[in-house]
Design a protein around this nucleic acid. Structure first.
Length: 339
DNA sequence: AAATCGGGGCT
DNA sequence: AGCCCAGATTT
């Protein structure tokens, strides 16, 4: 009887939780591009893009990606470099390679038919415990719960306990609305992203505040990763024709580099040399390092390796996000919308 | 279990 | 200047 410790939202209150959460979601769900339908392909693409990536960042790439690769067949037929070019700036480029590999598997091995269960989705590269459940609940209506950073935070606040990974998944499964699993999962994440935020949660706006044990406090510890700082210098060299940028000198990263292998970037220079001032500076953070980037005007004679790339080709080139940012800021390329 | 993989936006 | 995000894979 008093064994109810293991229940996070007590069983009797779980139906109320579902009702209020879904009613809130029906009224407040953000109008996101991947919520236009429940077709497996766009849902799958969105879930891969959303791995460890904020909604706002995904929105900037999602429509471009689907325009370029409207079907799994088109994606499977594409070159990897084309896929990476559209992915450029989104980060975690392994996701793009695995998405591409999975598309080939779906076309060649599954004859273009998408998996219909979370277990079958799980077999594909780039799809782990979270993603297979997210896709299957949304696109296949399979009653399976997801746990991401949002869900974990919501559930630990609601229960006022720090839960092991096993416990979180169990709690999410208990709470799941089995009639509308896809909406329920998205509602949990939406609540975490927009109301039950890491800091300063908006409990006054929360549909389940009355069922919440903490109402804002988060039990347990936070893990702090040390963020290193580095300065780095790049050489920017470009030709102009008719007063417009025509070609730019770029370098391809080694194919076997662990970080962004095979992608194009500006040549790095060890020191600024005699130049008094860089063209400009930008800030950029990758993995655990915050870079202060200085961009220097440079003459061709300094270059040994690398290639002159036509500016018109740049949108189709697998460039690093930093290179894209620099070229945009330098006025070599226009704003992000160019295809 | 821990390390690795991008990048950016908010506090 | 931290923090941390609709995680998966490798070691």
């Amino acid at each position: 009887m008093q064994r109810g410790h293991h229940q996070n939202v007590p069983g009797k209150r779980a139906p109320v939780f579902r009702l209020r959460l879904l009613a809130w979601y029906d009224a407040h769900a953000r109008d996101l591009p991947w919520r236009k339908n429940r077709d497996p392909y766009p849902v799958w693409v969105s879930e891969i893009m959303l791995q460890q990536t904020r909604v706002a960042a995904v929105i900037q790439h999602y429509d471009d990606f689907l325009r370029r690769f409207p079907t799994v067949e088109k994606l499977a037929r594409a070159r990897q470099s084309s896929v990476l070019a559209v992915w450029s700036g989104l980060g975690y480029y392994r996701r793009a390679r695995m998405l591409h590999a999975a598309a080939k598997m779906i076309v060649r091995e599954l004859h273009g038919k998408f998996p219909q269960t979370s277990g079958d989705w799980r077999e594909l590269p780039g799809i782990g415990r979270y993603t297979c459940a997210a896709i299957a609940s949304i696109a296949c209506d399979e009653p399976i719960a997801v746990v991401d950073g949002n869900v974990e935070r919501v559930l630990s606040r609601v229960s006022s306990r720090r839960l092991s990974e096993q416990q979180v998944w169990h709690a999410a499964e208990d709470l799941l609305d089995r009639e509308r699993p896809g909406d329920f999962n998205q509602a949990m994440m939406e609540l975490g992203a927009t109301v039950c935020t890491p800091k300063a949660p908006a409990c006054l706006l929360c549909p389940v505040v009355e069922l919440c044990a903490t109402r804002g406090d988060l039990p347990g510890e936070t893990k702090a990763l040390p963020q290193k700082k580095r300065e780095i210098h790049y050489a920017l060299d470009h030709h102009s024709e008719n007063g417009r940028p025509a070609r730019v000198f770029l370098l391809q990263r080694p194919r076997d580099a662990s970080l962004m292998p095979g992608m194009w970037e500006l040549p790095e220079i060890s020191s600024p040399g005699d130049h008094a001032k860089p063209l400009f500076k930008v800030k950029h953070s990758i993995t655990v390092t915050d870079y202060t980037v200085s961009v220097w005007s440079s003459s061709p004679s300094n270059h040994t390796a690398g290639k002159w790339i036509a500016v018109r080709q740049l949108p189709k080139l697998a460039m690093t996000g930093l290179a894209r940012k620099i070229l945009r800021k330098a006025g070599v390329t226009k704003s992000a919308g160019v295809r």
